[in-house]
């Protein structure tokens, strides 16, 4: 057995770890045993399905299939980010456009510069990381801007009442929001390798690539995630600003209260 890649028997054996987690939950009366079992089963089924589809895409559809796959990821990520920002006008198109912009620009640059190969087996996993990073940043921006538009309404309207255009009246809030949304990407870039060995690098090392080669990929990944988060945040911020104000520089009423977000 090659220890780098587990066999199906090995995967089945690792299910014992799920039983351990279930046992801990049951023993501690955490009322989580059922959730853990469902989550573990779902993970197995989802990943098996994804693996089968990826195999098809890699073998038969090439870059066209990869583009379709990425587009689907962007749509799903847009839904997830928009759901977090419920109550913000036009949240779904804004989130989707921001994630698409961040992912397309970053991935496009990497492909144009020849940093990564234009092959489905490269574009899909790298694209997945980019979309995921862009999604997190977009969700943070939209949640925060929606909340600012609610809580800072008196201050925003005080600025508007002094004749400031909407862009100027909202600038302090947009600036703080973008800073906050980029902190996770900046911090993980700062601490990479010190606090955790990141996914791409770990994967390559497990697959037998020597660490010094693996870090080259990881460096590219970190830079790309920074760019994707920054571009997606900026796009989301600008689009949300347009959605929050009307042509007469008025902050629109946000009617629906945000529901408690499910984790």
């Amino acid at each position: 057995m090659n220890p780098a890649v587990p066999t199906w028997a090995g995967v089945a054996a690792s299910a014992a770890l799920v039983l351990l987690a279930v046992a801990v939950a049951w023993h501690g009366r955490l009322r989580l045993a059922r959730d853990i079992a469902i989550a573990a089963t779902r993970a197995g089924v989802q990943l098996a399905a994804v693996g089968a589809v990826l195999l098809l895409v890699f073998q038969h559809t090439g870059l066209v299939g990869a583009s379709g796959w990425l587009a689907l990821m962007v749509l799903v990520a847009g839904q997830v980010a928009a759901r977090r920002a419920r109550g913000l006008p036009r949240a779904l198109p804004i989130a989707t456009a921001a994630i698409a912009a961040g992912a397309a620009a970053t991935l496009g640059a990497l492909l144009a510069l020849g940093v990564i190969a234009a092959q489905a087996r490269v574009v899909i996993p790298v694209g997945g990381m980019v979309v995921s990073g862009a999604m997190q940043a977009t969700a943070l921006v939209l949640i925060r801007l929606r909340d600012e538009a609610r809580t800072a309404r008196p201050a925003i309207e005080a600025r508007l009442s002094l004749g400031l255009p909407a862009t100027d009246a909202f600038a302090p809030y947009l600036r703080t929001t973008l800073r906050t949304a980029l902190i996770p990407a900046v911090d993980s870039t700062k601490t990479v390798g010190l606090i955790s060995l990141p996914g791409a690098m770990t994967g390559l090392i497990l697959a037998g690539v020597d660490p010094f080669t693996a870090i080259r990929y990881q460096i590219v990944v970190m830079y790309m995630l920074l760019a994707a988060a920054a571009l997606a945040s900026l796009t989301a911020g600008r689009l949300a600003e347009h959605a929050l104000f009307d042509d007469a520089h008025r902050l629109r009423p946000l009617t629906t209260e945000p529901r408690r977000e499910r984790v």
């Binding site: 008196p154 201050a155 309207e157 005080a158 508007l160 009442s161 002094l162 004749g163 400031l164 520089h249």
Partner: peptide, 17 residues
């Protein structure tokens, strides 16, 4: 914007910026 410079508004709570 010109109108709002001619017609100022001060709200109920003092909001300092």
């Amino acid at each position: 914007l010109a109108l709002r410079r001619r017609v100022g508004l001060v709200g109920q709570q003092p909001v300092l910026l």
